[in-house]
Amino acid sequence: MTPPLLEVREVVKAYSMGSVLSRHRIRAVEGVSFTMKAERPEIFTIIGESGSGKTTLARMILNTVSPTAGTIRFRGTDLSKIWRGRDRLAFMRGVQPIFQNPFDAFNPLKQIDRYLFTTARRMAGLRTVKEIEDRADQALKKVGLSLVEIRGRFPHELSGGQLQRIAIARALISTPALIVADEPVSMIDASLRMSIVNLLRNLRDEMGVSIIYITHDLATAYYISDRIIIMRKGRVVEGGDARAVLDNPQHPYSIQLKQAVLSPDAAGSGGALLSAGLVESQAELGELT
């Protein structure tokens, strides 16, 4: 039996904060578990607001932060057992990231094609210039661009949408099985946002890549996800089939979250959907004083 693509088991991440005298630990992620199967590619969405621990969780899956407790296995390999450079490269070949800010995902002082070429050389093990350029071009074609368009260009010459496509193309070069996308559309202009979301969906449907989609936006999550978990203060409060959970949330927090989403259909209602939302401020002041 093949091991699951990704197995996250009881993962905890705690940070020490404060000075020597008043040291306290903050638990960013507390006992999160889920499994992604290798047989069927899916879009697995992690929903959470700021401080929910969703980005810390993503970093642990990318193995750039190590968990305080619990294990993460990618295709059966425990990430904490990856020590040698060669194993690290092998892991990164299988798991690639996409970041939130496309304007910062590439060095502003460098031509953008070098990241594609370096990935093709180091991660895909290609040698000749022709092979490398062909592979970069193929990857760019998958995201609706081509090498001719971006060769020699600098990041500031391209739009956020184009940059995010290039970031996805770069991630695809090593033919990963899993892509971890941390808020990939939150900084993209509204008119370009849906094309990136659609692209993620295509990756799953046509290339068989599984995606961990991290977001605070319930609407796009509903649009593309197969399964979701909703996180709050490091814990998973609700999870399951995306449509089922979002159509009919059970946990009070999930319900509150869904109610807070502003619908464009309410245009002209004069703010009927805006909840009073003042309870929380009183609670906060209670903590303060």
């Binding site: 008119s191 946002r193 849906m194 319930l218 796009t220 159509d247 869904k258 464009p264």
Partner: peptide, 14 residues
């Protein structure tokens, strides 16, 4: 192009 909860019909980007 605005996505809405409850709708999954494909929406195009510009």
């Amino acid at each position: 192009s605005l996505p809405r909860i409850g709708y999954v019909a494909a929406r195009k980007g510009l």
